[in-house]
Write a protein that binds this DNA or RNA. Structure first.
Length: 477
RNA sequence: GCCGGCUUGGCGGAGUAGUGACGCGACGGACUGCAGAUCCGUUCUACUUGGGUGCAAAUCCCAAAGCCGGCUCCA
C-alpha cells in the first residue's frame, strides 16, 4: 500500500487516486527568467521519480508541469536585457528542455504556459469577484483574504497571525494587507491583455490554479512543488480555486520537496548562494547528478558539495559494474552454455527480494534511500553469485530487474549499442573475440608482455578487458 | 514574536520498541601473472542532553540545548 505525506494534513496517508488507475498530477514548474539552479533541478528530479514510480505501480499518470512566463521577475529581467518578455521566455524554456533531457526527466503530458491561458485566468478572476471574494480597485483585482475563512488550511497560519509582519507596497490599493493580487493593471512598457477591468496582466498565483483545472479538472490528485511554495503560493492557489470553482479542496494530496542546501544553508537566488543546474551538469556526469538528486528522501534537506557528488559517482559506479559483471557472464555462457546451479536459485530468490524491498521502501512516502539500499544488497548478491551461475536466463532476469528499478530513479543502465550497430556490431564482437583468443594463448604460455599489449592497445580503443574465472570479458567504455 | 522541521558511527544516510540497514572512506585479508572488478572481515561503548513509561526505547511521553526553515519573489 502506497502512503504519501500530505502537507495538507501533515500526515502520511494511503494514496488512492480519485479516478481508479489514473493519477492526475501537477508540479509547479520554473519561472523562465533565468537559468534554473540545482535546487530547481532537485524538484524536477524528485517529482519525475514519483511519477515514474506511480507508473511502475500501474497507474496511468497525466503529468502537467508549467512555465510561468509572465510576472514581475520576467518583466524586470526583460527590461534589464532590453528584450521582450516573450523572447526571454523562449530562451529559458529552451534551456529548461536541455536540462530536462540531461537529467533524464520524462516529458510531461503537457507543459502549458501562463500566457496561453490568459482568457481562462480572466474567467477565474471574474468568478471570484462574482462569488464575493475579490474586488476591483483602479484596474487591479485583489483576493479578499478576510472573506475566506478557510484561508491558512495548507500553511496552518492563523488568519490573525498573518497580518503581523505584512507590508503593503507603494502603489497597492489593498483593503487588507493580507489580500493578494489576482490581476494587475497595466503599467507603461509592460505586456498586457484586455480584461473586464481594463488592460493588465495576471497576478502571481493565478496561473497554476487555472492550468491545473484546465488540464486535469478539479479536484485532482497530486500537486507538487518545493517547500517554499507552501506559503503564499499554494495557500493562495487553494483559496482562489475554491473561491472560483466551489470545490472545497481542489487538490487531494499536496507534496513538497525539501530544500537543497549549501553548507546547510538554503540555496536561493536572492541570497546569491546558488549553483545553476548548468554548471553542475557541466562538472559532473549527468547520471551521477540525477542519482545524487534522488538519493535523499525528498522531504529532507539535501546538501550540495563536492564530496556528496563524488560519493554519488562512486555509488552509481558500483551499480553499473554489477550490470557489466552480468553482461560479461552472459556473453561467456552464450558461447559455452551451461546448466542451472544452486547459485541460479539463490539469484532468483534475490531478484524476488529486491523487488519486494524496493516497493516496500518506495511505498513508504517514496523512501529512495531505503530503496537504493535494497538495490545495493541486490548488487552484492549479483557480485557474489554471478561467477557460479550456470544459465543465462536468470542473469537476464537479474539485469532487467536492476535496469527497471534504476529507471524509476531516472538512471538508464541499458546499452543501446546492439540495436544501433547491426551488422558492424557483430563484426566487432568477432574481432575482439579473436584478439582475446590470441591473448589467452599468450597468457597460457606466460607471454605476459604480449597479453598486456593486447589489453593496453584495446584500452586505447576504449575497449576494456577484465579477466574472470570463466575467461575474459570486455566492454566498450 | 508566531508557526514548522531537524539533531544517528570518520562522512553521507535509513530505521517497524527487542540480532548495530545501505553507501562512501580507512585498515586488514581473499582472489589474481599483473590490472580492473569483486568477496570476506575490522572500523561496533552510533543514536544532542536531562527526566519519564516499558521486561525492553534511536524508536513512545515531558522538558532543555543546538541547528535549519516559513511568516517577503524563490523548487
Amino acid at each position: 500500500m502506497l502512503q504519501v505525506y500530505n502537507t495538507l494534513t501533515r500526515k502520511k496517508e494511503e494514496f488512492k487516486p480519485i479516478e481508479k488507475n489514473h493519477v492526475r498530477m501537477y508540479v509547479c514548474g520554473p519561472t523562465v527568467y533565468d537559468y534554473p539552479h540545482i535546487g530547481n533541478a532537485r524538484s524536477f528530479a524528485v517529482f519525475d521519480t514519483i511519477r515514474r514510480y506511480l507508473e511502475y505501480k500501474g497507474y496511468r499518470v497525466t503529468y502537467i508541469t508549467n512555465f510561468t512566463d509572465i510576472d514581475d521577475k520576467m518583466i524586470n529581467r526583460a527590461n534589464e536585457e532590453g528584450i521582450s518578455v516573450a523572447d526571454l521566455a523562449a530562451r529559458f524554456i529552451a534551456e529548461y528542455y536541455i536540462i530536462a533531457s540531461e537529467l533524464n526527466l520524462k516529458p510531461a503530458t503537457v507543459n502549458p504556459r501562463a500566457t496561453e491561458h490568459i482568457d481562462d485566468i480572466i474567467d477565474m478572476v471574474s468568478k471570484i469577484i462574482e462569488n464575493g471574494h475579490g474586488y476591483v480597485v483602479d484596474g487591479d483585482v485583489y483576493f479578499d483574504v478576510p472573506s475566506w475563512s478557510n484561508y491558512g488550511v495548507l500553511s496552518k497560519i492563523p488568519l490573525d497571525e498573518l497580518s503581523a509582519g505584512l507590508r503593503v507596497n507603494v502603489g497597492e490599493k489593498k483593503k487588507d494587507p493580507r489580500d493578494f493580487a489576482l490581476w494587475k493593471a497595466e503599467k507603461p512598457g509592460e505586456p498586457s491583455w484586455d480584461s473586464p477591468w481594463g488592460k493588465g496582466r495576471p497576478g502571481w498565483h493565478a496561473e497554476c490554479s487555472v492550468m491545473g483545472k484546465y488540464y486535469l479538472g478539479i479536484p485532482f490528485d497530486i500537486h507538487g512543488g518545493g517547500q517554499d511554495l507552501i506559503f503564499p503560493h499554494h495557500e493562495n492557489e487553494i483559496a482562489q480555486s475554491a473561491a472560483a470553482y466551489g470545490e472545497k479542496t481542489p487538490v487531494k494530496y499536496w507534496l513538497h520537496n525539501g530544500f537543497l542546501t549549501i553548507n546547510t544553508e538554503k540555496m536561493s537566488k536572492s541570497e546569491g548562494n546558488f549553483f545553476t543546474a548548468r554548471e553542475v551538469l557541466d562538472n559532473y556526469d549527468h547520471q551521477a547528478v540525477r542519482f545524487y538528486l534522488v538519493s535523499g528522501q525528498y522531504r529532507q534537506p539535501l546538501d550540495y558539495n563536492d564530496k556528496a557528488l563524488k560519493q554519488a559517482i562512486q555509488s552509481l559506479e558500483r551499480i553499473k559494474n554489477a550490470a557489466d559483471t552480468i553482461r560479461g557472464k552472459i556473453s561467456i555462457l552464450e558461447k559455452k552454455g551451461g546448466r542451472r546451479t544452486k547459485a541460479d536459485d539463490k539469484l532468483s530468490e534475490a531478484i524476488k527480494k529486491v523487488r519486494e524491498g524496493f516497493e516496500r521502501e518506495m511505498d513508504d512516502d517514496f523512501n529512495t534511500p531505503g530503496a537504493i539500499a535494497e538495490i545495493f544488497t541486490f548488487v552484492r548478491d549479483i557480485n557474489s553469485l554471478t561467477p557460479d551461475i550456470g544459465n543465462a536466463a536468470v542473469l537476464r532476469e537479474a539485469l532487467s530487474t536492476l535496469s527497471e528499478l534504476m529507471s524509476i530513479l531516472g538512471i538508464n543502465l541499458e546499452k543501446a549499442e546492439d540495436e544501433a550497430g547491426g551488422k558492424s556490431v557483430e563484426v566487432l564482437k568477432g574481432v575482439v573475440g579473436l584478439l582475446l583468443e590470441v591473448r589467452e594463448n599468450a597468457r597460457k604460455s606466460k607471454d605476459y608482455a604480449a597479453a598486456d599489449m593486447i589489453r593496453d592497445r584495446l584500452k586505447e580503443l576504449s575497449i576494456s578487458v577484465a579477466d574472470t574465472k570463466d575467461g575474459p570479458t570486455w566492454k566498450i567504455e
